[in-house]
Write a protein that binds this DNA or RNA. Structure first.
Lengths: 237, 237
DNA sequence: AAGTGGTCTAGACCACGCG
DNA sequence: GCGTGGTCTAGACCACTTG
């Protein structure tokens, strides 16, 4: 059961991405859209606000809503998108190699990052992402076993993200992302095709569930020349 | 004239940041807040949605709104915040040195980035940001003269951003940000205290006005060890 | 003056969490 | 069953843009 405003939001996105609604043109006014979809103005406005937030349109008072053409490519790396979704969108052949998969007792660093006690058990997953035959990304994931009782190599090779949302039914609420650049470690050099690079782009991700519990800590370590982060931001008051 | 929901939004932020409302506690329910502020539920909901979007609270159906404690520090680098706002927030002594300020004819690269023709004139501003006596950031800004007729050294040493919003009254709508890591150029080495680092974190910013016109292109070049980008993301449908 | 989006209101029903 | 937030409606007034 999907809400009306989400349905309309998705329908308009489809129209924009398929080119049925051209970019830089005006969208129908809120009044027209009300009639078109037989809903109240507030429902239309919810859909349009979502479109605006996510960079599809820009509303201008007194004039109308205009379709932006920024979203053509290079948008996906933002937000919470996973590696699998990403590589599928870009359409580059890529693969995931699981290097380590085990249950561990957290050390001090992990206890702090994952907000767990020394008696909790934690899944540790280390994966290498290969893009076009080069080992480019080293992913280190840590989950509290409380939330994820079972984890297999197959799941890790596919998408842990999908498993969590679809199979376990856990709903992800929000995430904090931190990007820095560091000296490459021995581990980086061991697992990745670093060529002559001695630095690594580190993306730390703290992922929280809907009920605000910290659920996962992830470190994604990228070869600097292959790293790109794109973000869309609106002025927030 | 500020809208009610923005006023309430800001009031609640103040309460959260001052500690009057403690983190990890429950906020008053929408019903209570209605009475408290003597407004309709919809107005309260607008305020709470803003708070949720910006990472102050998490709403949970059937339970209530909970105050998050993520926003303590390290949040500002996200979004559209300017260097001046940022260093004021962090409270580190910093200064800006204007290296170049001139009107130029755009080359091919700029024509593409700024979406201007060869007959337009473009402001070129090059500034070095000093943090704690070290030259850390090289900022290269380009504006279409059409939007900014006058620009002085004084303005560039203060905040171009404030000048644009307050003096010129231009309203910024949204921005696209792109982060990559590149080899340091001769220009980087000339202007910055790079020490032994030979790479540079490049943050490209495309800034658009309210009416969707591309207004400014900025390249912010950071010494890698001093770079940090923090982002808060909610799952977007 | 007419049309647009922005704000605000009042009321209704629903789905969820908890006791 | 009660209180919570989520969705939807209908109507009103305002500020802004354009002809």
């Amino acid at each position: 059961m999907v809400s009306k405003y989400l349905a309309i939001y998705n329908e308009i996105i489809t129209k924009i991405e398929s080119g049925e609604i051209e970019s830089n043109t005006k969208l129908s006014s809120e009044n027209e859209l009300m009639k078109e979809y037989s809903v109240s103005r507030d429902t239309i406005r919810k859909s349009l606000n979502l479109l605006e937030q996510n960079g599809y349109i820009q509303k201008i008072k007194g004039k109308g809503s205009f379709v932006l053409d920024i979203n053509k490519f290079d948008f996906p790396v933002s937000g919470l998108t996973s590696f699998k979704e990403l590589s599928e969108k870009i359409g580059v052949k890529s693969s995931t190699i699981v290097k380590e998969l085990e249950l561990i007792k957290p050390d001090k660093f992990l206890m702090k990052q994952l907000n767990v006690s020394k008696d909790d058990e934690v899944w540790k997953v280390i994966r290498v992402r290969e893009i076009g035959d080069k080992k480019i990304i080293l992913d280190k994931d840590f989950f509290n076993k409380k939330f994820v009782p079972v984890l297999t190599k197959d799941i890790c090779e596919d998408s842990i993200f999908e498993y969590i949302e679809n199979e376990l039914g856990l709903r992800i609420g929000f995430a904090k992302k931190e990007i820095t650049v560091q000296q490459a470690t021995e581990e980086d050099k061991k697992y990745l095709d670093l060529e002559n690079y001695n630095m690594i782009v580190v993306v730390k991700n703290y992922i929280y569930l809907d009920d605000t519990s910290l659920f996962q800590y992830t470190e994604s370590r990228h070869r600097p020349d292959k790293f790109k982060f794109v973000d869309f931001a609106r002025r927030s008051y």
